[in-house]
Design a protein around this nucleic acid. Structure first.
Length: 338
DNA sequence: CCTAAACTACCCATTACGTCA
DNA sequence: CGTGACGTAATGGGTAGTTTA
C-alpha cells in the first residue's frame, strides 16, 4: 500500500495548518539555465530577496537578511526608483576620488557612465540613492584609507595584466553602504554603478562584482531555506503516511473483530470527504443521492448488499493509487467532521 | 523589414586571497 | 609559526537581450 500524496498537494494541504510555512516552491529552485528567459530570471531572482516578495502574489518563505548593522529595511516607498534623494549628491566628486581615480581602466570604465552621471540632472532619479549618507564623511575617510592601503592592488588589476590579482577587502563602511544600496536595488543600472563606485572610491567593475556576489549569496541563502522547508514537508508527509497506515490497520482490525459493525445503520458511518477519516454522523448522508466515490457509505448505501459491498471493499489489499489516477476536485468543506 | 555581428548585462562555477581559530 | 576552514573578491565562460550596420 502506498500513499499517493505529492509534495505540491502537501504544500497546499499544509497551508491551512501552517500558513507561515507556505512557500512558492517554484521560485529560485531548479530554475535551470535556458529554462527561462534572462528577463524572467532577473524578475525571479530578486524574489529571493525582500522587495519582490511583497509584490509577489505567491506566499513564500522569506529570508530575513537584516543586516548585522541593525539597519532597517527600506520602506516600500523607499524602494521606488523615483524616491526622493536624501542627501546624496552623485554629482559631487568625492574628495579622495579626484586624487585616487587615475588608473587607465577606471577611466575606461567610467568613460560612458561617469559622463552620463555627471551630466545628468540632480533630479535624475536613475542615479540617485535614497540613502541617508550621514556617514559620508566616514566613507570618504574609509575610502581614503582603503585606497591608500590598496593603491598598489588597484593599479595592478587589469592594466598590469599578467600580474597576480590582489584581493582587496572592502572596509566596513564600504560594505555597509553597498548593503544599503543592495536593499534599494538588487541590480544596478550603469549610472547607479558609477555613482556608487565614485562614492566608495571603487571601480565600477568592483561594484558590479560585489552586487553579483551579493545576489549569489542571497540566492544561496534562499536555497538553504527552501531546502529546509522541503525537509520539513517530507517529515510531515512521512508522519501523515504513518498515521494513515495505522488508521487503516485499525479499521481492518475493527472489521474482522466486530461483525456487528455490519449491522450499523447505513447512515452511521461515513468518510469525511475532506480529511478522509471515518466519522459517524447520521445526518450526513441521509439525503445524499450521489455520495463521493471514495466514501465508505457508498459501499453501505444499500443495506441488503452491505456484506458483499464490504467484502468487495476489504477483500483485497486496496491501495490508494492516488498518484496514479487523476484526483477528484477538492471536496466541499466538510460538515460532518470537526 | 530581416539578419548577423557586436555589445552589454547577467548568472554561474571556480579560483584565489585574507582572516581567524 | 604553520595550517585548514571559511568568507568573499575576482575571473572566465556561457546565455540572452539590445543595438547597429
Amino acid at each position: 500500500m502506498e500513499l499517493g500524496l505529492s509534495l505540491g498537494e502537501a504544500a497546499v494541504a499544509d497551508a491551512g495548518r501552517a500558513p507561515e510555512l507556505v512557500l512558492g516552491l517554484g521560485v529560485g529552485v531548479g530554475a535551470g539555465r535556458g529554462e527561462e528567459s534572462e528577463k524572467r530570471r532577473r524578475e525571479v531572482a530578486p524574489a529571493a530577496g525582500w522587495w519582490a516578495a511583497a509584490a509577489s502574489p505567491e506566499p513564500s518563505v522569506r529570508l530575513s537578511l537584516v543586516s548585522s548593522l541593525g539597519l532597517r529595511w527600506p520602506s516600500e516607498s523607499g524602494r521606488s526608483e523615483a524616491s526622493p534623494r536624501a542627501g546624496f549628491d552623485v554629482n559631487r566628486m568625492p574628495s579622495v576620488a579626484a586624487g585616487a581615480a587615475g588608473t587607465a581602466e577606471e577611466e575606461e570604465d567610467e568613460e560612458d557612465g561617469a559622463a552620463a552621471a555627471l551630466s545628468s540632472s540632480p533630479n535624475d532619479s536613475g542615479a540617485s540613492f535614497p540613502l541617508d549618507l550621514s556617514a559620508h564623511g566616514r566613507l570618504e575617510a574609509a575610502a581614503a584609507q582603503a585606497g591608500g592601503d590598496r593603491s598598489s592592488s588597484r593599479a595592478s588589476d587589469d592594466d598590469e595584466g599578467a600580474s597576480a590579482r590582489k584581493k582587496l577587502r572592502l572596509s566596513k563602511d564600504q560594505s555597509a553602504f553597498l548593503e544599503e544600496s543592495f536593499k534599494e536595488h538588487s541590480t544596478l543600472n550603469p549610472k547607479q554603478k558609477v555613482a556608487l563606485a565614485k562614492q566608495l572610491n571603487l571601480r565600477p567593475r568592483q561594484v558590479e562584482v560585489w552586487f553579483q556576489n551579493r545576489r549569489a549569496r542571497t540566492k544561496l541563502k534562499q536555497t538553504e531555506v527552501d531546502c529546509e522547508y522541503l525537509k520539513r514537508c517530507c517529515e510531515t508527509l512521512t508522519e501523515e503516511n504513518r498515521r494513515l497506515h495505522k488508521e487503516l490497520s485499525e479499521l481492518r482490525a475493527l472489521k474482522t473483530a466486530q461483525p456487528f459493525y455490519m449491522h450499523l445503520p447505513a447512515t452511521t458511518l461515513s468518510m469525511c470527504p475532506s480529511c478522509e477519516r471515518v466519522a459517524s454522523n447520521p445526518a450526513a448522508n441521509a439525503s445524499t443521492s450521489a455520495p463521493p466515490a471514495n466514501t465508505i457509505n457508498a459501499a453501505v448505501a444499500a443495506p441488503e448488499q452491505r456484506p458483499s459491498s464490504f467484502a468487495a471493499l476489504f477483500s483485497s489489499p486496496r491501495g490508494f493509487p492516488l498518484a496514479a489516477q487523476p484526483r477528484p476536485p477538492p471536496p466541499p468543506p466538510a460538515s460532518n467532521c470537526l
